[in-house]
Computed example of a mutant assay.
Amino acid sequence: MKKLLFVIIAVFGFSNISAQGGEDNSQNSNSGEGFNLGLHAGIPVGDWDDLSSFAIGLDVSYLFNLSEGIDVGLATGYINFFSKDFDGFEVEDLGIIPVALSSRIVLGEDWFFGADVGYGIITNEGSDGGGFYYYPKIGLRIGSADIFGYYQSMIKDSIDASSVGIGATFNLN
């Protein structure tokens, strides 16, 4: 619960930065259309809470403007859950490559909601495939950058590798 509260405070804290910012340089008034590249960092939750101390990821997407305030496209990237010792055993880092459909809906002048849904491929040696992947986020557009809070999860055989945190994505168009 403390982790979720931290993310909510961080996201709403960025609203002050936006309010003090200058003019909006974004395309189509808050559209994420085009090529986007970003990073996110979070705290593992769920089944990986005891096995991992930190998660960091790279986000890559290309979005098309479907209509006023709605963007859709494809997303991929890489997520790494950094392992920690578990009851004296060394656990291997968990790597995931998401392949997903991505969407972004404008909630106002600066706010948006986005979600990626697809398949997460486990990159660890000896792993067999991956599982269902989802990545909802809510954030704030500041110029050509998005600052957001997120929950990210990949579920395989009822094991949930999830994290909650903050991230930033930059529109490169």
Rank of each mutant, 00 (worst) to 15 (best):
Leu94Ala: 10
Tyr62Met: 04
Thr169Asp: 11
Thr76Arg: 05
Leu37Asp: 05
Lys137Ser: 04
Leu4His: 10
Ser103Asn: 11
Lys3Pro: 05
Asn28Phe: 12
Gly13Leu: 11
Ile43Gly: 06
Ala161Lys: 11
Asp71Trp: 00
Asn25Phe: 07
Val99Met: 10
Phe81Lys: 06
Gly165Arg: 01
Glu23Leu: 05
Ser26Tyr: 00
Ser83Glu: 10
Arg104Phe: 01
Ser153Cys: 10
Ser163Met: 09
Leu51Trp: 05
Ala75Asp: 00
Tyr135Gly: 03
Ser31Lys: 07
Gln27Lys: 13
Phe170Val: 13
Asp87Glu: 15
Ser163Ile: 04
Ile122Ala: 06
Ser158His: 11
Phe12His: 07
Asp160Arg: 10
Asp47Ala: 10
Phe12Cys: 15
Asn124Phe: 15
Ser162Leu: 07
Asn171Met: 05
Asp50Thr: 10
Ser26Pro: 03
Thr76Ala: 03
Asp85Cys: 01
Phe113Arg: 11
Ile96His: 05
Glu68Asn: 15
Ser102Trp: 05
Ser144Gln: 10
Thr76Met: 04
Val60Gln: 14
Leu172Gln: 05
Val106Thr: 14
Asp146Lys: 12
Asp24Phe: 00
Gly77Ser: 13
Gly130Trp: 00
Gly165Cys: 07
Asn28Gly: 08
Gln152Asp: 04
Ile138His: 03
Asn173Glu: 08
Gly38Glu: 01
Val45Ala: 02
Thr169Lys: 15
Ser162Ile: 00
Gly38Asn: 11
Gly139Lys: 07
Leu58His: 05
Gly32Glu: 03
Ala41His: 00
Leu107Tyr: 08
Asn173Ala: 04
Leu39His: 09
Thr169Gln: 14
Asp116Gln: 14
Gly22Asn: 08
Ala19Arg: 13
Met1Trp: 12
Asn171Cys: 03
Leu140Thr: 13
Lys137Cys: 02
Ser102Phe: 01
Ala10Met: 14
Val164Asn: 05
Phe89Met: 12
Gly73Val: 02
Phe81Glu: 06
Gly38Asp: 02
Ser103Ile: 02
Asp50His: 05
Gly69Ile: 11
Ile122His: 02
Ile122Met: 04
Gly13Ser: 11
Met1Ala: 10
Asp85Ile: 03
Leu51Gln: 08
Asp146Ala: 13
Tyr134Pro: 00
Ser52Met: 09
Phe132Thr: 12
Ala100Ser: 14
Met1Lys: 14
Val99Gly: 03
Gly21Val: 06
Phe12Asn: 12
Asp85Met: 02
Phe6Ser: 09
Ala10Glu: 03
Ser103Met: 13
